[in-house]
Structures are given as structure tokens and as C-alpha cells.
């Protein structure tokens, strides 16, 4: 099949960017979207033009490195699918495909389609862990965990940190990512001791980078792991409790 690409090109962080158009003839419909870009890049290189910079690694939807705005949808048209798992059979011969980077103040563009998502690491560093030094753990079966709890935690824990939720959100809010990380730990017995300190720290850090959630629910649709915004409600509930409790503790802190 033959497609035409409109790709955002930008030399560096605060350099001007613009769309460039490339025609990509003779692409197999079995090719994955990124394989299509590989081919385009090889062709670009051979006629002395710089290839398109885009991030990727595992190419099986788990590392979260990939992430492109394809025809105005994060990770493209297929629901619950990361960019790297998208295949060309989802497009029609002759399509014009617009490819943009994630756009959010918290995700500065580094080059072409690559953005800096390290704000997510800052959020996790703020408290997205259980404080347990190596070796100090009790036997794994000492604390039973209701299967439902483990499953619910897992539903949140599958987040791959791709940033599509932020890219999708009209407010550039990172609520879904943060809520997922919080729910993963806060739904498990192991996460309880630090539950409320964690919520406050992670949300406050999140807000120093990203917008606020006005419940557009667009993130849920964009999420390649179909993580539910119900977790955002949980975040809100826990945060309110946290401010109340931690606030009362503030005197002692």
C-alpha cells in the first residue's frame, strides 16, 4: 500500500518545528507502524536527509518507550494498543497520516517525535514505592492478599508509563498515570503503611509538572492498557483523606 506522512520535525528542544511531508509507497499491510517508519527512515538516509527521530524499544507494547500522536489520536486509531503494536492494515491505501509528538509543558520536545517524560520518574521518586530494604521482607505467604485486591492492583500496575494519558488530556493532566501507580500500591496490604504520605507526595509532585483533571475521560480511551479513570476517583478520595490526616499530623512533622 502507498501512504503519505505528515511528520513533525524539530531539530532540538527549543527550536522551531514544522511539518514535513513524505510519501511512503509500497508498504506491506503486514508491516507494523514503526516498521513503516524504519523503511521511510532508510529511504531518507539514502537520499541524504536526516531520518525521523522517534522513540521505541521493545516493540511489543510493554516498555512504554514508543508513543506517537497518529491522526490526532495518541497511539493511533486502534484502542488498547501501543504505537509499536499498531499495524498498517489499520490504514487504507492512499491515506495521509499525520504524526506528531506528545504535546505537554511537562513533556518538552527533545527532537522530532521524541519528548522528555522524566517528570514521570520524579512522580514515582516522590513516593511511588514501598519502603522495604532488600533482605528485610517476611515470607511471601505471611500476608494473604484477597485475590480481588491483587487483581485490582494488577489492573492498575499494568501501566507502561508511555504518557499517552497526558498527551490525550485537554488539560495535559497526568492523573491517570499517577492514579494507576497509586492504586497499584494503595490497594495492596503492603502499601498501607505509607498510603497517605505517598498520595500527598506523588500528587503534589504531579501538579508541579502537569495540569489538573476536569474529568474529560479522554485518557482512559488513549491508554494502551485500558486503565480505568475509576482509579482517578480513588486518587481524589485518598488525597483528600491524606491532606486531612497529614494536615493534622503537620504539627508533629
Amino acid at each position: 500500500m502507498d501512504v503519505t506522512l505528515r511528520v513533525w520535525r524539530q531539530d532540538g528542544p527549543d527550536r522551531p518545528g514544522a511539518f514535513e511531508e513524505y510519501s511512503a509507497p509500497g508498504i506491506s499491510s503486514h508491516a507494523s507502524f514503526l516498521e513503516m517508519l524504519d523503511i521511510v527512515n532508510d529511504r531518507l538516509t539514502l537520499d541524504n536527509r536526516e531520518p525521523i527521530a522517534f522513540e521505541h524499544d521493545c516493540r511489543e507494547g510493554i516498555c512504554g518507550a514508543c508513543g506517537l500522536m497518529i491522526n490526532g489520536q495518541p497511539h493511533g486509531p486502534q484502542q488498547g494498543t501501543a504505537t509499536c503494536q499498531l499495524h498498517m492494515r489499520k490504514f487504507r491505501d492512499g491515506d495521509v497520516i499525520t504524526i506528531e509528538p506528545w504535546r505537554a509543558a511537562g513533556f518538552p520536545i527533545l527532537k522530532d517525535l521524541i519528548v522528555d517524560r522524566s517528570a514521570f520518574d520524579r512522580i514515582v521518586e516522590a513516593g511511588g514505592y514501598v519502603t522495604v530494604d532488600t533482605g528485610s521482607a517476611p515470607d511471601a505467604n505471611l500476608v494473604p492478599v484477597a485475590q480481588e485486591a491483587a487483581e485490582a492492583a494488577m489492573d492498575a500496575a499494568v501501566c507502561i508509563g508511555c504518557g499517552a494519558c497526558v498527551a490525550a488530556c485537554p488539560n495535559s493532566a497526568a492523573q491517570l498515570f499517577t492514579a494507576a501507580k497509586l492504586a497499584h500500591l494503595n490497594l495492596l496490604p503492603q502499601g498501607q503503611p505509607e498510603r497517605f504520605i505517598r498520595v500527598e507526595a506523588m500528587v503534589d509532585t504531579m501538579e508541579s509538572f502537569f495540569g489538573s483533571c476536569t474529568n474529560h475521560a479522554e485518557c482512559e480511551e488513549a491508554c494502551p492498557k485500558r486503565i480505568s479513570i475509576d482509579f482517578i476517583a480513588l486518587l481524589n478520595r485518598d488525597y483528600i483523606k491524606a491532606k486531612w490526616r497529614n494536615g493534622r499530623l503537620a504539627g508533629q512533622r
Binding site: G72, T98, R103, A105, I109, P170, A173, F210, S212
Partner: peptide, 11 residues
């Protein structure tokens, strides 16, 4: 939220 936006998408 307006501050948090990093430029708008062309599409």
C-alpha cells in the same frame, strides 16, 4: 491547565 499545555496539536 492553560499553562500546562505544550502547544496545540495540528490535528
Amino acid at each position: 491547565n492553560w499553562k500546562a499545555r505544550g502547544g496545540r496539536y495540528r490535528e
